[in-house]
Design a binder for these strands. Structure first.
Lengths: 132, 132
DNA sequence: GCGTGATTACTCGGATACAAGATGTCCGAGTTTGAGCGG
DNA sequence: CCGCTCAAACTCGGACATCTTGTATCCGAGTAATCACGC
């Protein structure tokens, strides 16, 4: 039960892209270098963000990734769901006849967290400095 | 990013123990059978609950596990922390000069969830029926 | 009837096996830009 | 000066390789209750 590193990379990358917006697309190599990841791995992560419609890829020379949606619309939850999936964090395997009361509590707790992530946008954060 | 099955087992087992309290200790085999787990694996999970001081083991014939603390004091968060650990769900690997603003948001969201889990106790749930 | 030992019913802990998912790499393919070259 | 070609700079996607962690099993050891047996 931990957020994956991919989520960490995705959030930071989106933060960088928001800062760069609405400028030219940013190359994977540059993004990867700033975070100390391999470009190939980061591109796999970004592919998931593309599929969720948050960013788009620009192929060819001077290509890279850039924001697609309005930067004010992108919430933390959007990014996390794109990477981790939207499945519930807790799945009860017990053979209940009716709804599992434990699962209900867990789901409610999860929703509390998601609500906060849904209400926080990347533009709420201070711009990221390079030496940060 | 999912809660482990061990957490599921632990929560349901604690629920069963709360129902049985303050009766005699309940054997692992019985607890495991009700959940469709192997007794040996469940005992490993329960060991963690013992170490956290929530339950105690009674060895020997007619032994098993029983509640140690007051049943009204046991929160969901206690059980989850005993199984999953207390580490933060999100760890930023980026080399920031100061605090990571992304991590701050994530930690806050996590606290929202934990707050709900801390305020919910096992005794808030309806007793568990065998055929449930 | 009473003590003593053996059996039984349990938990405990370590070692190990297995599976799944996270993490990361490699490589071939497609795409756009831009430079170079010939007409 | 224009257009064509080709190389360079990119992303894309699949196929692997590796590592960690969750899940589960096995077995020997310890412990307490109970039973059996002999005095």
């Amino acid at each position: 039960m931990k957020f994956t590193k991919a989520t960490n990379y995705a959030l930071h990358t989106m933060h960088l892209l928001v800062d760069a917006s609405p400028a030219k697309p940013v190359g994977v190599q540059q993004l990867a270098e700033m975070q100390g990841v391999s470009p190939t791995y980061l591109s796999k992560i970004l592919t998931r963000l593309v599929k969720s419609g948050m960013i788009e890829s620009v192929s060819g020379a001077n290509g890279g990734y850039q924001l697609l949606r309005n930067k004010d619309d992108i919430t933390f939850l959007d990014i996390i769901h794109a990477i981790e999936g939207t499945a519930s964090l807790f799945e009860c395997n017990f053979f209940h006849s009716d709804e599992c009361s434990i699962q209900a509590v867990m789901k409610e707790a999860e929703m509390k967290m998601e609500l906060h992530l849904k209400n926080t946008k990347l533009t709420d954060l201070a711009p990221m400095n390079k030496n940060q």
